[in-house]
Simulated assay, not measured.
Amino acid sequence: MKKQWQGWGPGEQAEQHYLVQPRSLAGGGDVRHVAAFLHASGWRDKSKSGGPLFMESSDRTIRVAYDPYVLPGGWTIHSRADGPNGEWSAHLGIQTPVEIVAGLTDALTRPREAHAPNVWAPLQQQGWHTRFESGNYVSTSPDGTAWMQYHRGAGGEAMWWTGAKDGQGYGWTANFTPNTPMHLVHAFASELASPDPVMRPRGRVPHSTQIRTWSVSVKPSQLGAWQQARITAARAANWARNSTRAARPRTSARPYTPVGGARTRR
């Protein structure tokens, strides 16, 4: 009789995890949540073995990096100037939950929307309080732990600053440079404001008095299935995009050929 491998098949053991709310104070999480989706979307993984994460879009215009080995560390998303789109970047602290980071990075794989969305809408839909304060627009979560702020710099450029912090000082901040596309800021805000809890394994839950947790038992196969579903969705969307490009008709004009052929009899 074959020995059943521990952690696989019918004999696998459930592992203790925790659902954490609010998600903004759940801690960084597993960076593969971001990286695997980008890779399945056709991005290149240019990370060095044992080094920080480094991903590059297929057209080489956007880079996503995560470096926990430097201070202050965290995420850097940078896009070079491309045609009508100016250069921009976003910097997110090391404790920014990967689910919120993915709001922005997942949106990088989708086409830019024709019209700039209302960044405040997903916040207000979840009961965030938006106000004009000291020359800035500020929106704060109902429990006061997370915020999003819009202000203009000395040169009149628009700046976004956001983050979350508990009463003990634990948390993170993030900022977006002026040219950051609004649909990316909107996607980030949507995940920031989401009331859905996120999951963290035992030992990876922050020691904060302002979070709520629920213990759940999860099998490795269940975690794998959830992760695979996300990757499969990214691959399907990438395939659809590539198929659409391949199916586009040629725009260059073909040489004119008279009806009946170009040959003439002598």
Score class of each variant (00 low, 15 high):
Ala36Ser: 15
Arg110Asn: 08
Trp8Cys: 03
Met182Leu: 15
Gly260Met: 07
Thr264Trp: 04
Val216Glu: 09
Ala40Phe: 03
Ala253Cys: 09
Ile62Gln: 01
Leu223Gly: 08
Arg266Asn: 11
Pro197Tyr: 08
Phe176Ile: 02
Arg32Asn: 13
Leu123Arg: 03
Asn136Gly: 06
Ser41Lys: 05
Tyr137Ile: 13
Leu19Pro: 00
Asn175Met: 08
Ala164Val: 05
Pro84Met: 12
Arg266Asp: 12
Phe188Ser: 00
Thr209Tyr: 04
Lys3Leu: 14
Tyr69Glu: 11
Thr145Glu: 04
Pro195Gln: 10
Gln125Gly: 05
Glu87Cys: 11
Leu104Trp: 05
Gly153Phe: 07
Gly86Phe: 02
Ile94Glu: 07
Gln222Trp: 07
Gly27Cys: 03
Met148Asp: 02
Leu19Ser: 06
Ala154Trp: 10
Gly169Gln: 04
Ser215Glu: 15
Pro52Asp: 00
Gly51Trp: 08
Ile231His: 04
Ser194Phe: 02
Glu56Gly: 01
Pro22Lys: 02
Thr209Ser: 15
Asn118Arg: 09
Gly171Leu: 07
His207Phe: 13
Thr173His: 12
Thr140Ser: 04
Leu53Asp: 00
Val259Met: 13
Ser139Phe: 06
Ala36Asp: 14
Phe132Ala: 12
Ser252Tyr: 08
Pro201Tyr: 06
Val218Ala: 07
Val119Cys: 02
Asp30Arg: 00
Thr105Gln: 12
Gly260Gln: 00
Thr162His: 01
Ser89Cys: 11
Ala107Val: 11
Met148Gly: 03
Pro181Ile: 03
Leu104Cys: 08
Arg265Asp: 12
Pro117Asn: 08
Tyr18Cys: 04
Ala146Gln: 09
Ala121His: 11
Val119Asn: 01
Gly156Phe: 06
Ala262Pro: 00
Ser194Trp: 05
Ser57Phe: 12
Arg248His: 10
Leu19Glu: 08
His115Ile: 15
Val216Gln: 10
Val31Tyr: 04
Ala90Lys: 00
Thr251Ser: 10
Val101Tyr: 00
Ala174Leu: 01
Ser208Ala: 01
Val20Cys: 07
Gln222Asn: 07
Trp88Arg: 07
Ile231Ser: 07
Pro142Ser: 10
Gly260Thr: 06
Ser141Val: 06
Glu15Gly: 01
Tyr18Leu: 09
Gly167Gln: 11
Tyr137His: 13
Glu113Ser: 14
Gly135Glu: 11
Met55Cys: 14
Arg265Val: 13
Val98Cys: 07
Asp67Tyr: 00
Gly103Leu: 08
Gly42Phe: 05
His186Met: 08
Ala233Gln: 12
Ser141Met: 02
His183Tyr: 14
Pro22Tyr: 05
Arg241Thr: 13
Pro195Lys: 06
Arg241Tyr: 08
Asn238Gly: 03
Ile62Pro: 00
Arg263Asn: 14
Tyr150Ser: 12
Met199Arg: 13
Val205His: 07
Thr76Tyr: 01
Asn179Ser: 14
Ala102Thr: 10
Val218Thr: 13
Val101Pro: 00
Ser58Gly: 09
Met199Pro: 03
Ala81Gln: 11
Gln13Thr: 15
Gly203Ser: 04
Gly51Val: 03
Ser217Pro: 04
His91Phe: 14
His17Gln: 06
Ala102Ser: 15
Asp196Lys: 15
Gln16Trp: 09
Pro68Asp: 09
Ala114Met: 06
Ala116Phe: 05
